[in-house]
Nucleic acid binder design. Structure first.
Length: 816
RNA sequence: GCCGGAGUGGCGAAAUGGCAGACGCACGGGACUUAAAAUCCCGAGGAGCCAACGCUCCGUGAGGGUUCAAAUCCCUCCUCCGGCACCA
């Protein structure tokens, strides 16, 4: 009898073995085979079982690929810059670097204890100068091409994190990280011109069939492309024209007023002349509102007449100009032509302020004189619009667009919701933006040969306002690279999403010192063939990475223009919160974190791995339960117990039928595990292995030694990617030398499976009436004959009208 | 409001046009045990009929449709989750 299954005794030994044998080492100097990658994590410290899902799934696939003899690059690194390190520094009075490095150590250790193997020779830590200097180098290139620029605009400011944020980092009006309502501030900041790539970012999505539809839709919505016209209205008494943007130029003759955003530059001119005495006060109130405050007003429309009028270029009509709270300065031109008949907001506004509503689009069942109870926003027939009346909207839009350009009323224009990427952060723990401000030369980039601009270490962290970098005289005070005179260094650092936008290319040969990455090898190894990570990065990371990859592509530095061929989003693991009582993502504040340590001590890492992979399809959310863990453990214990039974079968010929049954079960299991892993369904692959375990159990007493051995050793090989420690240990005890990782991946005997008798379902009028065992490959006539016999009872006295035969599956008899 | 995704036993789920509920959890019964745990074996969607072997009907959120055949495809609706949201 073997001793009881004790993971504590076997797991550490194999973990050391895999590390020592460097199974994960990939030689990227050789031709590419496969590049798989998990999104590199932020080293926040301890990992819980929810984090494990991502890495365990990746390791499972990686081990299968290795067993199949593939040469796989599977690296890991650290997205090591970021605010939590800085906050920890303030709180505990240690340097962010120290905190970060300590966390990296802990997380690496956790990976090891999970039995996860990476090619650690390729490790990247993004807070190291050897990495971040290439952020600076890339910034210089983008500056040269006009893709990086300094601009003044209203930006999102998080008062808690004390930094500006990109649009993408504002969620429901609050800071993505801490939830604090974001304020608008007019600041001069650095931007990357992602909007010039908007169309290519959209178009590229169509060439990514193996990305989840959900992610592509989210990116399309975020980019928010709309085609329309910029139209110039002449404003009475004002020289420069007022430009509005519309996607519905076919409705222009229904424009009964023009509305401006409170922040619109023209608004100031009307302060003195506007008829309402509270005009100025009204405008100031709206301007001071945060986004959140505006939203909380629940869409209530509000506005004031400016006293001024504009002229509709199409029909020469004089319409009043209003200031309205629902017009956004951030989108379009900050001014709109309002068509109450065909826009819900305009309708509500016109109703409230008794402005005229004129029908110009007749929908189904409507005529030119139809009185509307609500806005009709669909397409239809143009009416009340002079020469354009009678056209359907679909035709009117392009025709009137041409008319606009021919008569100089404006231009056709494509606009996007997407804003340029604001990368300045008023924080210490990030890549310094490599720029110097000089009295005489203005903005001067730090030349490449003086990179990296290093983060200074003489920093006092504390709960004070402003970027800590501003308080480092050695950093701020510098000289102008052009004229050599005293100058001030930029103290903002880059958004850490810059770091994660190109790291995958550096992984291929990360120790290169004279370049951002090894262009030759990158040409051979990009794109990433399989990218695994959480859906929370659907917009932020995945769009920035696609953008910078396209930039690098334009620089001729990378092949193709999409970095990730296949994207797999694993679902979250949730568990019941002791605070809210609901299923929540694991977090300390929700009191529902399951830490791996106790679990591994009690049941072993293999149990956690098997349970994690068995919980459900990995792309779906799954609930962690302690009972489920037990089931996974029992499964491994049953596998462990087989080592005794194998001895009992020595030199036995066994029962022929039992032998046959077990062989079929074995080969069916191989096929199913293969098929299921190929479609990323480890859950059903494990179910297939459980069935094989059941079959081996049944056959233990009467199958031959050879057949039992084949079944058992096949099981160990199939099991390896899921439960690597126990499978290696049992493989060794079975008398094999060396690692299962080099033992090859089992293949199934297709011929054996194809000659098995099959069960035919027999239906009569769509209802299952019998099942019959037949030889495979039975033709329609023969199948129909046996089916008629089996279902004779239901055919009596009826006329057989039709027979449908699905080979080896079913016969459907239709009777009257 | 718009856009996506989902809804199947007590629970996690499987089956993507062809035998609904594989596999597992929890549960019930039995074996082993002084006992318990562990382990092993058996049972199980619901309703009804039968002494029994078995048989019948119903059943994948609701309703309709296509089909010999629908969890799966189509239409209408409901609920939940996620994303975007005064985007002109």
């Amino acid at each position: 009898m073997a001793e009881p299954y004790d993971p504590q005794q076997i797991e550490p030994r194999w973990q050391e073995f895999w590390a020592r044998e460097r199974f994960a080492a990939a030689d990227t100097a050789k031709a590419k085979d496969l590049y798989m990658l998990m999104m590199f994590p932020y080293p926040s410290g301890d990992l819980h079982v929810g984090h494990g899902r991502n890495y365990i799934l990746g390791d499972c696939l990686f081990r299968m690929f290795l067993m199949q003899g593939r040469k796989v690059l599977n690296p890991m690194g650290w997205d090591a810059f970021g605010l939590p390190a800085e906050n920890a520094a303030i709180k505990r009075n240690i340097h962010p670097r120290e905190w970060t490095i300590a966390n990296i150590g802990r997380m690496k250790d956790q990976f090891r204890r999970w039995g996860i193997v990476y090619d650690w020779d390729k490790e990247i830590t993004s807070c190291e100068p050897e990495y971040y200097r290439w952020n600076q180098w890339l910034f210089n290139r983008m500056l040269e091409k006009g893709l990086a620029y300094r601009g003044k605009s209203p930006v999102n400011w998080c008062p808690s994190c004390r930094t500006v944020l990109a649009n993408e980092q504002v969620v429901a009006g609050g800071c993505e990280r801490c939830g604090t309502p974001v304020e608008q501030r007019e600041l001069e900041q650095w931007f990357l011109r992602i909007t010039s790539y908007a169309d290519r970012l959209l178009e590229g999505l169509d060439r990514l069939p193996d990305w989840p539809e959900k992610v592509k839709v989210m990116q399309r919505n975020w980019i928010g492309r709309s085609e329309g016209c910029d139209l110039r209205f002449v404003v009475e008494g004002v020289k420069e024209p007022l430009t509005v943007f519309t996607t519905r130029v076919d409705t222009i003759c229904g424009a009964t007023f023009v509305a401006l955003a409170p922040e619109h530059p023209l608004v100031g001119r009307f302060r003195a002349t506007a008829p309402d005495p509270d005009f100025g006060e009204f405008v100031d109130r709206l301007r001071n509102q945060t986004r959140l405050q505006r939203e909380s007003e629940g869409g209530e429309k509000e506005g004031r007449f400016t006293g001024a009028h504009a002229v509709n270029p199409f029909n020469g009509e004089r319409v009043p100009i209003w200031v309205a709270n629902f017009v956004l300065m951030e989108y379009g031109t900050g001014a709109i032509m309002s068509v109450p008949a065909h826009d819900e907001r305009d309708f509500a506004f016109a109703t409230k302020y008794s402005l005229p509503i004129r029908l110009v689009i007749a929908g189904p069942g409507m005529g030119p004189d139809t009185v509307l109870a609500e806005a009709y926003t669909g397409l239809g027939k143009v009416v009340n619009s002079g020469p354009f009346s009678g056209l359907p909207s679909e035709e009117a839009i392009p025709r009137m667009g041409v008319h606009v350009e021919q008569h100089g009323f404006g231009t056709r224009k494509v606009r996007y919701r997407l804003r340029d990427w604001l990368i300045s952060r008023q924080r210490y723990w990030g890549t310094p933006i490599p720029v110097v401000y000089c009295e005489s030369d203005g903005i001067v980039p730090v030349p490449d040969d003086r990179l990296p601009v290093l983060l200074p270490t003489d920093i006092a962290f504390g709960n004070v306002d402003g970027n800590p970098l501003e308080r480092s005289p050695s950093f701020v005070k510098t000289t102008c690279p052009k004229c050599g005179k005293a100058a001030r260094r930029e103290t903002d650092t880059m958004d850490t999403f810059v770091d994660s936008s190109w790291y995958y290319a550096r992984f291929i040969n990360p120790h290169i010192h004279d370049a951002m990455f090894d262009r030759e090898r990158v040409r051979g190894w990009m794109p990433v063939d399989l990218y695994i990570g959480g859906v929370e990065h659907a917009i932020l990371h995945l769009m920035y990475a696609r953008f910078l990859y396209k930039v690098l592509s334009d620089f001729g530095m990378v092949p193709g223009d999409e970095p990730f061929s296949v994207l797999f989003n694993q679902g979250m693991i949730v568990s019941k919160s002791s605070i809210t009582g609901r299923l929540e993502k694991m977090s300390k504040s929700k009191g529902n974190v399951v830490a791996p340590d106790a679990l591994i001590a009690r049941y072993g890492a293999d149990t956690e791995r098997v349970y994690t992979l068995f919980m459900g399809p990995p792309e779906k959310e799954a609930e962690w339960t302690d009972e489920g863990v037990l089931g996974a453990h029992r499964f491994l214990q049953r596998v462990w117990a087989f080592q005794d039974a194998m001895g009992g079968a020595k030199a036995r010929a066994g029962d022929a039928a039992a032998n046959e049954r077990l062989r079929i079960a074995t080969h069916r299991a191989i096929k199913r595990v293969n098929d299921d892993l190929a479609r990323y369904h480890p859950n059903t692959a494990i179910a297939a292995m459980m069935e094989l375990v059941n079959s081996i159990s049944e056959a233990q007493k009467d199958a031959s030694e050879g057949v039992l051995r084949e079944a058992y050793e096949t099981l160990l090989r199939l099991l390896h990617p899921f439960a690597p420690h126990i499978s290696e240990e049992l493989w060794l005890r079975t008398g094999h030398e060396g690692s299962l990782l080099r033992a090859g991946w089992p293949t199934y005997d297709a011929e054996l499976l194809s000659r098995q008798r099959v069960t035919l379902a027999v239906q009569v009028n769509g209802k299952l009436r019998a099942t019959i065992e037949v030889d495979p490959g039975l033709d329609a006539e023969a199948a129909s004959a046996v089916a008629r016999e089996a279902a004779a009872r239901w055919l009596e006295g009826k006329e057989l009208v039709k027979v449908v035969h699905v080979p080896d599956r079913m016969v459907s008899l239709v009777v009257r």
